[in-house]
Computed example of a mutant assay.
Amino acid sequence: MAIALVLHRVADYDAWRAVYDSVADLQAAGGVTSESVHRMADDPGNVLVIHEFDTLSAAKAFFDNPELRAGMQRGGVQGEPRIEFFE
């Protein structure tokens, strides 16, 4: 199993969440087996997303998908997201 942690700032959480929810099919096709979203308690524009995958290679391939990057832009992600992989 592999886990990807994604930390990024969003301009508007509700707008970002609508886009995030709209790409559920992209997540499923990319091998996401479980996901959760968390907001920093004292900074709700700071979002942590946790995705689980069967393999590290599936996780890395998912985050290399240009459709995912386009979705992040549509959702109002500010700056470059921090993405870390764990096994």
Rank of each mutant, 00 (worst) to 15 (best):
residue 68 L to W: 13
residue 42 D to H: 09
residue 26 L to T: 09
residue 59 A to W: 06
residue 34 S to I: 00
residue 37 V to W: 04
residue 45 G to N: 06
residue 16 W to H: 06
residue 37 V to H: 02
residue 21 D to L: 09
residue 40 M to T: 14
residue 36 S to C: 05
residue 47 V to E: 02
residue 28 A to H: 02
residue 18 A to M: 00
residue 70 A to H: 11
residue 68 L to F: 07
residue 31 G to D: 09
residue 50 I to W: 01
residue 62 F to V: 06
residue 30 G to A: 11
residue 34 S to W: 07
residue 29 A to T: 14
residue 48 L to H: 03
residue 37 V to N: 08
residue 31 G to P: 05
residue 47 V to K: 03
residue 41 A to F: 15
residue 27 Q to G: 07
residue 20 Y to Q: 04
residue 53 F to L: 04
residue 31 G to S: 09
residue 37 V to R: 13
residue 59 A to Q: 03
residue 50 I to C: 04
residue 46 N to R: 13
residue 39 R to F: 15
residue 64 D to Y: 14
residue 29 A to D: 13
residue 41 A to G: 08
residue 19 V to E: 02
residue 26 L to S: 00
residue 22 S to N: 01
residue 27 Q to K: 12
residue 51 H to Y: 15
residue 32 V to T: 10
residue 62 F to L: 00
residue 36 S to A: 14
residue 19 V to S: 04
residue 48 L to Q: 05
residue 49 V to Y: 00
residue 21 D to E: 15
residue 47 V to S: 07
residue 47 V to N: 04
residue 42 D to I: 15
residue 61 A to K: 07
residue 56 L to S: 09
residue 58 A to N: 11
residue 25 D to L: 08
residue 60 K to M: 09
residue 42 D to S: 03
residue 44 P to R: 10
residue 20 Y to P: 01
residue 29 A to G: 06
residue 21 D to C: 10
residue 55 T to S: 13
residue 28 A to E: 11
residue 64 D to V: 04
residue 20 Y to L: 01
residue 26 L to F: 08
residue 65 N to T: 13
residue 50 I to F: 01
residue 25 D to T: 10
residue 59 A to V: 06
residue 67 E to H: 05
residue 69 R to G: 04
residue 38 H to Y: 14
residue 16 W to T: 03
residue 59 A to R: 08
residue 48 L to N: 09
residue 44 P to M: 08
residue 45 G to W: 03
residue 33 T to E: 10
residue 70 A to E: 14
residue 48 L to P: 03
